[in-house]
Design a protein around this nucleic acid. Structure first.
Length: 513
RNA sequence: GGCGAGGUAGCCAAGUGGUUAGGCAACGGUUUGCAAAACCGUCACACGCCGGUUCGAAUCCGGUCCUCGCCUCCA
């Protein structure tokens, strides 16, 4: 039995996974409020918990993964007004962009992806329960509408997730005084709105749900009270997740904890500061994907442990174009692993099993391959240490390349080559398995090579035709032993970011990141 | 003010009581007409500062400096 363990924000400890039902795990992740296109932070959260789900599944758990879409929100209303668009049309459009781009960075679709607008009845049910239990109260508003608020002081456990004390919150600087609420800390479960404003009919009249209640309603519907893991960004710990706990546990006080464990991902910082609209340093997923391959972005996100902050630094080229050096570096690693995959596939094309007597010099790499894979698994078991898992993926690739090199050097030794083919097949299998767990290397080598080449040519303003023409000229020069001319052409291409590789079957070229 | 994260070699980034993290950059080597790719090696006896515990500390304890985040919508 493997021991998968994760950091639980509720207890501030790394704890073994302890599913409610043997081998079944329910995960709820707070998804985006869809009023704009997704940014790097959305991608980070989605990728972190996609790896969580993939790893759990690789470990044999039957995972139900729920990630919601918040499609009712004041920001959506405001943006839709600016656009002259219906709010739900805007949120649908942005939800679609989110799905596409998050899928592009290698995230599998959640088992359920509920939207708030489809779950009003579930929300009403919880709010009514809370009112009946005295944990929430209705307020008549001046305009004739009615709000419903959750009474924070009625819930004794308030603050247990974020380690905040109610009285300290009150004395804290920024709790606004609001005469409509009985207590400044109370938060809205339902906000009444005029009939002509965007809203839904509820037991308390026309209006819209408060932000927090949706997650209580939807997690309850798809996973039930007391599910295994609730996930989201660290900024959601307070007040969002604290409030979810309060609502759900106050609604069903006899059912124990709302969620058994809480996992939170760290922020994305841009040039040392938290990415934020007010600082104007937002990097959208689209920005990154215009510049880099989606798998490079994912690799980059996984180089840092999910709980720590990730430095997303930007740089400017001479022409003013913004680039992402960290993602560029990751893209070179993705290139490397795909290239390795190519060499291993070739070598292992007609591999048989490992021979009884494996040629000397192959035992060690083979053993090391197994060890690297084991270390990667141990690292993922230990609170999803993707940084180490990627290092081990690199180690497996390195060993694979080594075997390919050895097979070349000793190509006249049939026993060795046979053994090398078999070891290459094993290495290939390990890379595939580990990459699948990490959500990487989902494309074929050909697809990856083609799409990165096209993108890099476009970014550099180059055309494949021009490059081919220069290569032909260089090939001619080489045949005439005019190496000065050949080298001049090589250097010209090199200056444009194009590297040449002279092989037995001609000259191949590649464009740098 | 309350709560929290972090300071690791030129840069990025794991580790958290004792044996190599890893990557990038740079430099050497094998290979090559020259290169590229790949592989090997060097940079690397690094861990903010000061004390303490310990046979032994980047890792534990105390103090201290600095950076950042949350406490208001936020992934």
């Amino acid at each position: 039995m493997t021991t998968v363990r994760f950091y639980n924000t509720l207890t501030r400890n790394v704890e073994p996974l302890n599913p409610r039902q043997d081998q079944k795990v329910g995960v709820y992740c707070c998804g985006p409020t869809v009023y704009d296109v997704p940014h790097a932070g959305h991608a980070r959260a989605a990728v972190a918990f996609d790896v969580l789900v993939r790893h759990l599944r690789a470990r044999g758990y039957d995972v139900t993964y729920v990630r919601n879409i918040t499609d009712i929100d004041d920001k959506i209303l405001a943006r839709a007004k600016e656009n002259g668009e219906a709010p739900l049309a805007l949120s649908q459009r942005m939800a679609e962009v989110y799905r596409q781009q998050i899928a592009a960075v290698g995230c599998e679709s959640p088992t359920h992806e509920p939207k708030v607008s489809d779950h009003l009845p579930e929300i009403f049910a919880i709010v009514e329960k809370l009112i009946a239990r005295g944990a929430a109260y209705v307020v008549d508003m001046p305009g004739g509408t009615r709000d419903v608020y959750f009474s924070v002081r009625s819930f004794p456990g308030y603050g247990k997730l974020s380690r905040r004390k109610i009285d300290e919150l009150v004395s804290g600087a920024r709790v606004e005084k609001d005469e409509t609420k009985r207590d400044p800390l109370d938060f809205a479960l339902w906000k009444g709105a005029p009939e002509d404003e965007w809203g839904w009919k509820s037991p308390w009249g026309h209006g819209r749900p408060g932000w927090h209640i949706e997650c209580s309603a939807m997690s309850g519907k798809y996973l039930g009270h007391g599910f295994d893991i609730h996930a989201g960004g660290m900024d959601l710990i307070f007040p969002h997740h604290e409030n979810e706990i309060a609502q759900s546990e106050a609604a069903d006080p006899d059912q124990g904890d709302f969620a058994r464990a809480w996992m939170h991902n760290g922020f994305v910082n841009v040039d040392k500061e938290k990415m934020s609209k007010s600082l104007g340093n937002f990097v959208t997923v689209r920005d990154v994907l215009e510049r880099n391959d989606p798998e490079a972005f994912r690799w980059f996100l996984l180089t840092v442990h999910y709980r720590g902050p990730i430095q997303f630094d930007t740089d400017k080229l001479g022409d003013g174009r913004v680039v992402f050096p960290g993602v560029d570096e990751a893209e070179r690693r993705v290139d490397y692993v795909y290239a390795t995959l190519g060499r291993l596939s070739e070598l292992s094309a007609d591999a048989a099993g490992i021979p009884d007597k494996l040629a000397a010099g192959l035992h060690e790499p083979r053993v090391e391959l197994g060890r690297a894979m084991q270390r990667a698994q141990d690292a993922l078991d230990d609170d999803l240490n993707t940084s180490v898992a990627l290092a081990e993926l690199g180690e497996i690739a390195r060993l694979g390349n080594d075997v390919c090199d050895l097979a070349l050097k000793r190509r006249k030794d049939p026993a060795f080559v046979t053994g090398a083919r078999a070891v290459a097949a094993e290495a290939l299998g390990l890379i595939d398995a580990l990459a699948r767990q990490l959500g990487l290397l989902a494309a074929t080598r050909e697809e990856y090579a083609q799409r990165t080449r096209e993108r890099r040519l476009r970014l550099r303003g180059l055309s494949a035709g021009d490059i081919d023409a220069k290569i032909q000229a260089r090939t001619a020069a080489r045949q005439n032993k005019d190496f000065a001319k050949a080298d001049e052409l090589r250097q010209e291409l090199e200056a444009q970011g194009v590297s040449l590789r002279d092989g037995a079957s001609g000259t191949e070229w590649s464009v740098g990141v």
